[in-house]
Design a protein around this nucleic acid. Structure first.
Lengths: 246, 246
DNA sequence: TCTAAGTGGAGAAAAACTTTCCACCTACGG
DNA sequence: CCGTAGGTGGAAAGTTTTTCTCCACTTAGA
């Protein structure tokens, strides 16, 4: 949120993210609407994926479609806006958690619950394939990923987090778990996610002497994997996937 | 699969699930196509939700649209078909796991991995809101839920599964974790899900003496909750939700 | 070999979504 | 408190997606 509104409010003619430089200053109500749109877009994208009707986003934001189109001429402008907001908030949550909790594992727990509350994680995978990464977006992503990785490293150094847990085990699980269940929106959904996160967190703990555990199976998705996404995405148009489907 | 094809192959004029009683016997190739359609529908529904284009389902099944429409005149016929298949396979997986593993927690683990492989869980929540439960559907659901609950009960009796874990902690997590991540289909997705399931399973274990754990927070979603879904759904048309959205 | 059952794909009809336009508001500097 | 540049919602035209039917052709199975 913060970084995003800053970027707009102070926008001079810097030829950066928004592609269209806003004429110096926005009216207060317009700015407010912009926030509403971004929040709505985040929620709808999370639930329905990046092709969700813009119409619906406008409605949920409580504005007319025209307003949405004026602020974000393209769908990809909107997606980019959401992505920036999401990365920023994630990184901030990680920093806050670090400063707030002395024990590193507790910091990780705090962060993960916060990320869940923000319903942030689930938007990302849907969005990543749809926006070309550039310096700006890549920067905010880095700003998010680094403090999260730091959380992991510290907790592992303290011996409270399983040593074979990787960045992807945190990030991708957050994406899964913070995504609303499909179909009828479920009232219990949010709370249940927190409960299940608690169980997952217990699984992330360094095993005690009592219960011997097997090595974790499966692909090693570390922070480098996320960085590689960039290359993966850049060459690819918003169109349909190339290979055989699933 | 099994129960479903049985139901169709032997279909006399029993005025049951399919609503249209098939004329006694289907040609072998037609039956094969029907299976293909159901499998395709399951995958597409899982990935895209219950409003996915039927067109695409037909294409993935390798049949013409006409074939799909002949076999399942309505979208809801298709959904119901998938739901029956899914419930049946889930229940079977639970029974197999129970018979195959002596230690109850291992049986639970085996079951959960199997459910993941079948990519089953993720279809259900999407589908549940779209089909009116009747005796038939309710029956197969029961046939699935009961053996799963039994798995839990036994593992808890053996002391290896946390005593405060409920049906919903298993079922809803399976739904979350088996749902493909949105956006570009990810090659690692399946394996990663298994890896994360392993972590979750560790969290499900009865805690050792070393690491004291807090009570699980959040809503208690037990098997009764699932049974209540029926009432919840029945009064509701396939149309749009009534209340304020999310 | 015969035929009833089954099939695919073209394309009309319907639905969903995007995008523009314009008459009407309203924040905010003077 | 007033004028106005900046902002707004919603209707409707335009475009794309999706549904669903029809029919000439193929094939399982007796």
């Amino acid at each position: 949120m913060t970084a995003d509104s800053d970027a707009t409010a102070t926008a001079t003619a810097t030829a950066t993210a928004g592609a269209k430089a806003q004429p110096a200053r926005m009216r207060a109500d317009a700015l407010r609407n912009r926030e509403h749109i971004l929040r709505a877009a985040r929620e709808i994208f999370a639930a329905q994926g990046p092709d969700a009707p813009l119409d619906e986003i406008a409605r949920r934001a409580g504005v007319g479609v025209a307003t949405l189109y004026r602020r974000f001429p393209d769908r990809s402008d909107l997606i980019r806006g959401v992505a920036v907001e999401v990365f920023t908030a994630l990184g901030e949550a990680a920093l806050v958690a670090r400063d707030e909790r002395a024990e590193p594992f507790e910091a990780l727990r705090t962060f993960m619950h916060a990320a869940l509350d923000l319903k942030l994680g689930s938007v990302l995978p849907a969005l990543m394939g749809r926006v070309a990464m550039d310096e700006v977006l890549d920067g905010v992503r880095q700003d998010a990923a680094d403090p999260i990785q730091e959380l992991l490293t510290q907790a592992q150094a303290a011996g409270t987090l399983r040593p074979d847990v990787l960045f992807g085990d945190i990030a991708l699980m957050l994406m899964r778990i913070s995504r609303p269940l499909p179909g009828e929106p479920l009232a219990e959904d949010g709370d249940l996610a927190h409960r299940q996160l608690e169980i997952y967190l217990d699984g992330l703990r360094t095993p005690g002497a009592t219960a011997p555990r097997a090595e974790l199976p499966g692909p090693a998705v570390d922070i480098g994997w996320f960085k590689r996404i960039r290359a993966h995405v850049i060459g690819k148009a918003p169109g349909s996937p190339p290979g055989p489907q699933i």
